[in-house]
Design a protein around this nucleic acid. Structure first.
Lengths: 220, 220
DNA sequence: TCTGCCTCGGATGTATACAACAGGGAGGCG
DNA sequence: CGCCTCCCTGTTGTATACATCCGAGGCAGA
């Protein structure tokens, strides 16, 4: 059984591998928004045929990271309006997931969230790790909501906003009030006050939106 | 140029054709929830190779109509919990789209909505037409919100709930209070009262949810 | 020189072909 | 008689091959 792990790596389909890699590259900004993604080029780059590349592109298009414009696929462009829309959706959905999840966060969950919170307090944390830890902190509540579609949507929206956050990774996490808001959310979770946690989550998203938007407007 | 129209039909990719057809078949309940969708079978059925079928299945999976379970694709099953989740999401998002869209509904838009409302008053309307008209009525506001992602999400969620509605097409539209709610929404739109229209939309979705849920619980 | 057409290259959409894997059934063994 | 095992069939994932379409670039003509 253990040996099968080696086989398991091989078992991961090429399409999944390409999709995962492309997802990271697009999310992380390595592939510039608006740039064209050629099937042939990616196929050669990953050493596979165009078929798994097609599958991957279709999947990313479903996630909104890629746009299929007729026959050509391009990395979805970024815009202030798009950012606005993404946060509107997140502010609509994540508070609901919070309200549903809070009652099901147990002692172990609180402990994990406390640990993740402490990790984000480290001033020397790498920005990428901060983002990941931040996502894990919130996911701790969301996953307990028992709403598979909602959770998938939340993750999808977070990945899409991450593209904007990656534009100024160096300053993210420096905004002390985001961390303070995390503490307030955790307190509400501890107190099992779902409505409060939901409202704090909404406000937290509004803060995040403001931080990203300010940076975009200042930096261009 | 005109002759090219013939070519234009051919121009619509086979993948798009298969995706469109499958979307209707799944939405309309012709393909039973949970049933397996074989690439080979569909390919032969549509007289194409498996490649466009793969593309179509990936796309439908992105829309949530199909689930890719490892190597096999199945029609996404229906469940009370899923219905609950879908309406939770719709109640979260559609009021926002309403609030954003109402200020931009002009005289022509009100006229179109009035006409659509009248169409739904016809007691002899075919259930399928009622559903379509209903969707058009609400879309009249949503499309003006200027939020492409939100609109796409709303349409996606509506298609997913349509699957449940199709289970009892014959009784839908008979609930007079849904039509009364439409009238109230239209009144709020005429009065340019966006918050009221948003709240009415939310309540309208709650009513729809109740109608569908009652039927499911009563019929099994 | 500018314009228009025409050809060629590259890209995609699709079909066919091949290898690996999963699932089921028949047969053998305990 | 029951269970395990092996084989076989069907399916998927992927590669390769072909037809089609769009655009760039060059060439000829005014």
């Amino acid at each position: 059984m253990v040996l099968r792990q080696t086989a398991h790596v091989t078992t991961e389909s090429a399409a999944a591998r390409v999709a995962g890699s492309l997802r990271e590259r697009v999310s992380g900004g390595l592939l510039p928004p608006g740039s064209a993604l050629s099937q042939s080029g990616l196929a050669e780059e990953y050493g596979v045929s165009r078929i798994p590349v097609r599958d991957a592109l279709r999947q990313l298009a479903g996630e909104g990271l890629v746009e299929l414009r007729g026959t050509t696929a391009v990395v979805t462009p970024l815009s202030i309006d798009d950012l606005q829309e993404l946060y509107e959706l997140r502010e609509a959905v994540e508070p609901i997931a919070t309200r549903l999840g809070v009652p099901r966060v147990g002692r172990a969950g609180v402990a994990r969230m406390t640990r993740l919170l402490a990790l984000m307090d480290d001033p020397d944390i790498r920005p990428g790790d901060w983002l990941e830890t931040n996502a894990a902190f919130h996911a701790e509540v969301y996953t307990l909501a028992g709403r598979p579609r909602m959770i998938a949507l939340v993750e999808q929206l977070r990945r899409l906003t991450d593209r904007y956050v990656y534009l100024h990774l160096d300053v993210i996490g420096r905004s002390g009030h985001l961390q303070e808001e995390h503490r307030q959310i955790l307190d509400a979770v501890k107190a099992q006050d779902a409505p409060a946690a939901a409202e704090l989550t909404r406000a937290h998203l509004a803060s995040s939106h403001a931080v990203v938007l300010d940076y975009l407007l200042s930096q261009g």
